[in-house]
Design a protein around this nucleic acid. Structure first.
Length: 112
DNA sequence: GCTTTGACGTATG
DNA sequence: TCATACGCCAAAG
């Protein structure tokens, strides 16, 4: 397990219930700015058994990253809605459920 | 080693 | 809103 990987997992685990974050934001918080794809790759390789709120991670646009209609896609929508997050047509309104600067600071404590 | 392939992001038109 | 282009980088072939 690489240090960078551990930090990515930690950043994801820190997302509060009922909230979502983008791949880019996670990468940035893990000290890997510009490496959103790495986060996606990690999640793709992450076994289902791992306890990680992977479903709280979306694209910067608010769209669910998985192929619409796929197993994972439906699972992600289900889990999000179970937390009270609105998923409309495979998309989440980040204006309300995304982590804004204030909450971000409160969570990860630190600035950029 | 080089090329291809992604659960991505930002800029442009 | 959709499409293209380019940046990014670890893995797999």
């Amino acid at each position: 397990m690489q240090e960078s990987h551990a930090r990515v997992y930690a950043a994801i685990a820190a997302i509060p219930r009922g909230r979502v974050a983008s791949y880019g934001a996670i990468a940035a918080r893990a000290g890997l700015p510009g490496r959103a794809r790495l986060v996606g790759k990690l999640l793709g390789e992450t076994p289902e058994g791992m306890e990680l709120p992977w479903y709280r991670v979306l694209r910067a646009s608010g769209h669910v990253a998985l192929p619409p209609g796929s197993r994972g896609f439906r699972e992600q929508c289900r889990l999000l809605r179970a937390e009270g997050v609105e998923v409309i047509n495979g998309r989440v309104p980040l204006s309300r459920f995304g982590l804004d600067a204030d909450l971000d600071r409160a969570l990860w404590g630190m600035p950029v």
